[in-house]
Write a protein that binds this DNA or RNA. Structure first.
Length: 129
RNA sequence: CCAGUUGGUCGGAGAACCGCGCCUCCUUCGGGAGGUGAGGAAAGUCCGGACUUCACGGAAGCACGGUGCCGGUUAACGACCGGGCAGGGUGACUUGACGGAAAGUGCAACAGAAAGCAAACCGCCGAUGGCCUGUUUUACAGGAUCAGGUAAGGAUGAAACGGUGCGGUAAGAGCGCACCACUCGUUCAGCAAUGAACAGGUACGGCAAACCCCACCGGAAGCAAGACCAAAUAGGGGCGGCGCAUGAUCUGUUUCCGGAUCGUCGCCCGGGUAGGUUGCUGGAGGCAAGUGGUAACAUUUGUCCAAGAGGAAUGGUUCUCGUCAAGGCUCGAAAGAGCCAAGACACAGAAUCCGGCUUAUAGACCGACUGGCUUU
RNA sequence: GUUCUCGUAGCUCAGUUGGAUAGAGCACAAGUUUCCUAAACUUGGGGCCGCAGGUUCAAUUCCUGCCGGGAACA
């Protein structure tokens, strides 16, 4: 129960078209085996709040079947909800772009990869335990 | 028991922990509680509707597109049901874009004499009328013969002007007859498609998924349709105030004398972008029983409410059971029986909603029927 | 979601409507020329015309159903 409260505090989901467009143009970007991570600083008005928003993308190019696409999206979403609130710097929006290996790789490996991506982008929390 | 045909149903179950969307209620505004949450194809977008906007006086016609044996069902359909006809199967059963080729225009390479309305290459004949020869004339006999008569046979092709047999003939020919085929007509059966009988004739080859003709149907676009609310910025209109260069432009026929616009401020109005709300799920609805109908289906009564997101929820991990199972072990002469077991458990994800069609689909179950074998 | 388009040789395209020979350029292979290579010239191979049915005497072409690309619409 405690965990759910915290995710509610720190993680929102992006739904506006404009946000997606700006994220796609962002240069803060690192690619791992299962997915690509893109990030962008939040606008100055909202930056003070302790929020990180994120979204998951799985295009028709990665997989043709809707079943496969949905499964990738779900796996990456649950993983992001575990990792991002704990490890990511506040004040950023994240976009996770699914790749084909997201379907087969283990959940633990995906988690480690996400942390690694954050590290390479220097968006890891300073007071990480 | 084996092989098969056909119709229908389901398409894993339970539990634990961590999560997600929507609705209702409560709240100390952090959240909490309860309810609910994919399919038979949700798919392809191939048809048909509902709904919405646009266009439009009505009706008919033209163009274009679609459908095409007959009757019924349906909101409608190219769907479904029943029947007919024609293929396939021993049979249950199954398959069929199945109107018209005597309305017209077209098409058919190569081969072949000839490919569509008649004609005649090799043939066959030469009765009839000539010609020639023989015998004594009439006359008779004969002719690789002329005029001509034929379409039986040959050869080509996917296809060649009804087929087989007998008669007939100079040779032949529906010329005649028998059976078959086809077509028009009459009678009978049937709502009809069509079938049966009788009589007459042989004229009328194929392709309409070539153009076309006939009958029937169709206005166009689609929920990213459409309706409503509406920030910021720019621009438009109205009213009022200020300003008044006494300037520019336009205007009342000209001058005088006016009016309007061009500047700026305030208020209001409408269009409308971002964004939001709605359309949005109670319906040609599901289930059960009864009634009518061969059936599709219709109808009566009872009962139930069963996703409504919008960068898109319905999930993840683990355990138990279920189904299949590579392989291993034990018993046994063998057939086989028992135990353990890695691994696997389909196709696939709602996006306005319905009725169909098509395509994908591991496996499980139920009903009806057919053929064969064995036993009684 | 809705509406459209296109699939022919290794690659880029003709041919399809109007039915009967599958063609062009580049690439590939062999030969000639050259001390060798390139260029040039000569010759050759390579296609189930996206797949499966149907109509027809005959289908790349006509019809139907699938499969795979590509595009447009707020």
């Amino acid at each position: 129960m405690k965990a759910t409260k915290e995710t509610g505090k720190f993680l929102g989901r992006l739904k506006q078209q404009a946000a997606f467009d700006s994220l796609r143009k962002s240069k803060l970007r690192w690619v791992s085996k299962g997915f690509a991570l893109q990030a962008i600083p939040r606008s100055t008005v909202e930056q003070s709040a302790p929020f990180n928003d994120f979204c998951v993308i799985a295009s028709k190019k990665t997989a043709k079947s809707a079943v496969v696409r949905n499964r990738m999206r779900r796996r990456l979403k649950t993983m992001a909800q575990d990792v991002l609130p704990e490890c990511a710097k506040n004040g950023y929006d994240f976009m996770i772009v699914a790749r084909r290996e997201a379907l087969t790789l283990d959940a633990d490996i995906l988690r480690r990869d996400l942390q690694w991506c954050l590290k390479r982008l220097e968006l890891l929390k300073q007071d990480d335990p």
